[in-house]
Design a protein around this nucleic acid. Sequence first.
DNA 1: GGGACGATTTGATCTGAGTCAATTTTCGCG
DNA 2: CGCGAAAATTGACTCAGATCAAATCGTCCC
Lengths: 247, 247
Amino acid sequence: MGHIHSPTAMPDDVSEPAVCAACAVRNSSLCGALSSEEIADLNGISRRKSLRPGQVHVMEGDPALDFANVTQGVAKLLRGAEDGRQQIVGLLLPSDFIGGVMGDKGKVEPCTIEAVSDLELCIFPRDRFQTLLDRYPALERKLLERTLNELQLARDWMVLLGRKTARERVATFILHVARKMRDHGCHGPVGFDLPLARSDIADHIGLTIETVSRQITLLRKDGIIDMKGARHIVSCDMDALSEASGF
Amino acid sequence: MGHIHSPTAMPDDVSEPAVCAACAVRNSSLCGALSSEEIADLNGISRRKSLRPGQVHVMEGDPALDFANVTQGVAKLLRGAEDGRQQIVGLLLPSDFIGGVMGDKGKVEPCTIEAVSDLELCIFPRDRFQTLLDRYPALERKLLERTLNELQLARDWMVLLGRKTARERVATFILHVARKMRDHGCHGPVGFDLPLARSDIADHIGLTIETVSRQITLLRKDGIIDMKGARHIVSCDMDALSEASGF
DNA sequence: GGGACGATTTGATCTGAGTCAATTTTCGCG
DNA sequence: CGCGAAAATTGACTCAGATCAAATCGTCCC
């Protein structure tokens, strides 16, 4: 049924570009700001990129070449020193947007972005995307709202890193993940997996692997969380977690 | 020379509203995105607000009622717990913009904003300001750029709070202040004042008053900074500070 | 100038989290 | 199912920064 020149095999004619129409994050991502007609412009400049766990999408300090949407998988945003110390400053889940700098060419990426799981991105060249921001105010407004939201999250995390105890940090982290998973519909009736290994959790909440491990053990002993294996959370008492997370 | 009906005493007729024309941050603030004609709209909805040190402009959790520019003075953005622990998540200097939430009414302020020195604000009602954002894309673009910049700063601070030593934190703080003062032209040939007391510095960089004090003493002994009194920095070796600040 | 209160510095001691070093568990894979 | 490597846990000990407790400094006001 599809046209011979269709960019990808699609079930049928649709009122919006085939690729975007089939996109898992068509509505939950920034793209939700655009109508079916408008999104053709975006589709026209997008390309796909797949990464395996551990692969780096962009490196801190590299020239900033493009924006992107996460369509599948989990990535970490991190900043690091030469001596191995690193801080994970954000997690990227499906429908999250990547693009920390606006304006002229010559700007550089502020953070390294590394795939944690198999990762699928939908990439847009910087200059062309900025043109679209000019054309579609709703897109720019949504980007502003998301950026303000990120700022909010970053400041929450500053409180965690600056003032919380180890137990509070771990509880906060699990609470955040549990909520994100619920909101993204990523957890079945049998709970959900932690998206990060202990070493990444440690780098995210400003502790060491050992301390993270000890605190998780304590939360289990206290009956606040129930786990199967090291990564899978079977259930957690949200109220108790909230209580344990401080503030 | 001025007209009788001028809102404030102004030297002469000008092509833009008297109040904005006289504003110390007319060009360095968000308002710099607007032409002399356009800014009349902003001027029409603005009002002034003065606060003394320690007074609170908005409280974390209050309904978000307006946006504002800082025209004079220093304020701190903070989030806190009931038990007295608090984290300063940002500093506001002249020309900085206040407005952490977009969208519908009913949203609440994410942070408390408290004056550190005598503070002058130029305030805009939320809904009316948002209307102007719709009308002037350049204004919205500039707000987006500033917000991305804030996000960048917040993430830098996450690295500091999550991974830096006490010495590195204090050096980083002084370096930041020195740069801000330089950029804002706020320091004369005889150096500049630290905008915060020890207790606020401690709340900003996630340490205690005592540790901040000790580290400042050490930086002085190392000849990296030279001070007169507890608040005035006479000179500082920017390279050595940068070196000491890590990363 | 002097008194007084708050801010800062300094000192002594304590402690939560880090470090170093083994285990033990998990999990992919033949 | 069982092997092996990587990840996670656990234990013993250390240490950077917190806490508690005095001095000392600054500065505002009379």
